[in-house]
């Protein structure tokens, strides 16, 4: 997979923390498998993994409630506790989750999370449409090296 999506996810979270001071920490995950794409603040990797795993469990529990209620797929979840709120926004492929202080502006936080999710979705669509392929320059005598792309490989975006 190209680096476009994780890079876009990382930028989206940087922007999220910049524009939304109520957000203490946020992660972007893959919906399938819950793999961590990006987290912010960036220096807390262990926290991000644990927070991401807990958010997956929240989404699973919310999904179970949805099934019991017989409703449409879930797009957003807000869990409010006296210590802070957890916000989750999801589409079919990605999940954006954040923790805020105990008195957040709910609509504003959801709006900012949806903006981050849209940025990741657009990057994923761009990545799917323009498959990145490694093209080995034919300037080496070693055919294996050329095939492996070790001889001055260039990255080129394939036109869709």
């Amino acid at each position: 997979m190209s680096e476009i999506v994780p890079s876009a996810a990382s930028s989206a979270l940087d922007e999220l923390l910049e524009v939304s001071p109520q957000v203490d920490a946020a992660v972007i995950l893959r919906r399938a498998g819950g793999g961590l794409l990006a987290s912010a603040p960036p220096t807390r990797d262990r926290m991000s993994d644990q927070f991401g795993a807990t958010c997956v469990r929240i989404l699973e529990a919310a999904e179970q409630s949805r099934v019991e209620l017989g409703r449409e797929p879930i797009a957003q979840v807000e869990v409010a506790t006296p210590e802070g709120h957890v916000f989750i926004v999801a589409d079919a492929d990605h999940v954006v989750a954040a923790v805020t202080d105990a008195d957040p502006t709910v609509g504003l936080v959801f709006y900012d999370l949806k903006t981050a999710l849209r940025a990741v979705r657009e990057a994923a669509a761009q990545s799917d449409n323009g498959l990145v392929v490694a093209v080995a320059e034919d300037d080496s005598d070693d055919p294996d090296a050329a095939i492996a792309g070790r001889a001055g490989a260039k990255w080129r975006r394939k036109k869709s």
Partner: peptide
């Protein structure tokens, strides 16, 4: 503590804080 579930059709359900689903979600929160 409370839980709000927002669905793709734009509707929202606030789970009663006494329900087992809300208790579980608040605990995870």
């Amino acid at each position: 503590p409370h839980v709000g579930l927002y669905f793709e059709d734009g509707s929202m359900v606030s789970l009663p804080d006494t329900s087992p689903q809300a208790t579980q979600l608040v605990e995870l929160g």
